[in-house]
């Protein structure tokens, strides 16, 4: 690809991002549903977890809330991306785009803009609620926010790419929505999002979830928003940030490769 067409693809990608955002935020019901489901889970389950861990005096609700922020942005990346692409395939968006000179890369750039903006909004919303209802304290050290930044970027990129790949397996929007949500719910469960601390889960279950991004994103975010001593409630008794970066990075690469391999423009099989 020459420099000129790469620049063209970027410019069209940003224009697509603007169009994606406009369309997303104009559908009020979708916006409310997308953002409120993780919020609802955070508020309801967070209120149930009344325990305080004796070793550290940390409330279970804080442990849960920090992990739920990760679950929230997986919803806006993996689930929303998968359903969004399936919808584009069903309503003719992709077919129309396929008949224009728009580079395929621009389509994905546009989607990434949407996912980045909606995931940031989701994270901010979840964080605000966690601070307000569960007294989570925002870190002041820049290093913590740097950790947040790379976990966010790697996690959201990998999950979005996996969402696109997963959408190619479904034949319809309804199929995609059901399938994506089942995978998402199951992974949240076995990654210890709903059961805190994660070490309360059977070790075999966590061994399985350790292959997937959910566990690492939530663990990484707990390291950002919880005090150092909370690391004892992780499976390894420490935050394992190096391993987190490795797993999330690997999923980014795998997700993008899978995307290239299985992405389909239409629902038709030939």
């Amino acid at each position: 690809m020459t420099a000129v067409t790469a620049r063209g693809a970027l410019a069209i990608g940003l224009a697509r991002g603007a169009v994606e955002l406009r369309q997303f935020f104009r559908q009020k019901e979708t916006v409310v549903f997308t953002f409120s489901l993780p919020v609802l889970l955070l508020v309801l389950l967070g209120s149930v977890f009344g325990d305080v861990y004796p070793e550290t005096g940390l409330p279970a609700s804080q442990l849960f809330a920090a992990g739920m922020i990760g679950a929230g942005i997986i919803s806006t990346s993996f689930v929303s991306m998968g359903i969004g692409v399936a919808l584009d395939r069903e309503d003719g968006t992709l077919k129309r785009l396929r008949g224009t000179p728009m580079p395929a890369l621009s389509y994905f750039l546009g989607k990434m803009v949407l996912v980045a903006v909606s995931s940031l909004a989701q994270a901010a919303l979840m964080l605000a609620i966690a601070v307000w209802l569960f007294d989570l304290t925002l870190p002041t050290a820049p290093g913590k926010w740097l950790t947040f930044a790379w976990i966010f970027v790697l996690g959201v990129t990998g999950c979005a790419a996996l969402g696109v790949a997963a959408s190619s397996l479904a034949r319809s929007v309804n199929g995609a929505a059901a399938g994506m949500n089942i995978v998402y719910l199951a992974l949240q469960f076995i990654s210890g999002v709903f059961i805190t601390p994660v070490s309360a889960l059977p070790a075999a279950m966590v061994s399985v979830s350790s292959f997937f991004p959910v566990k690492w994103m939530c663990q990484g975010l707990r390291s950002v928003f919880l005090p150092e001593e909370a690391a004892r409630y992780e499976m390894a008794g420490q935050w394992e940030l190096g391993l987190t970066a490795l797993v999330l990075g690997a999923w980014c690469v795998a997700g993008l490769l899978l995307c290239r391999l299985v992405f389909r423009w239409t629902n038709r099989r030939e």
């Binding site: 169009v19 406009r22 369309q23 309503d91 003719g92 968006t93 077919k95 129309r96 008949g99 224009t100």
Partner: peptide, 17 residues
């Protein structure tokens, strides 16, 4: 593709634009 134009038979895309 820049030299052809396609009018789709059924499309319901971009409803919110």
């Amino acid at each position: 593709r820049a030299r052809i134009g396609i009018v789709l038979q059924t499309a319901s895309d971009a409803a919110e634009l």
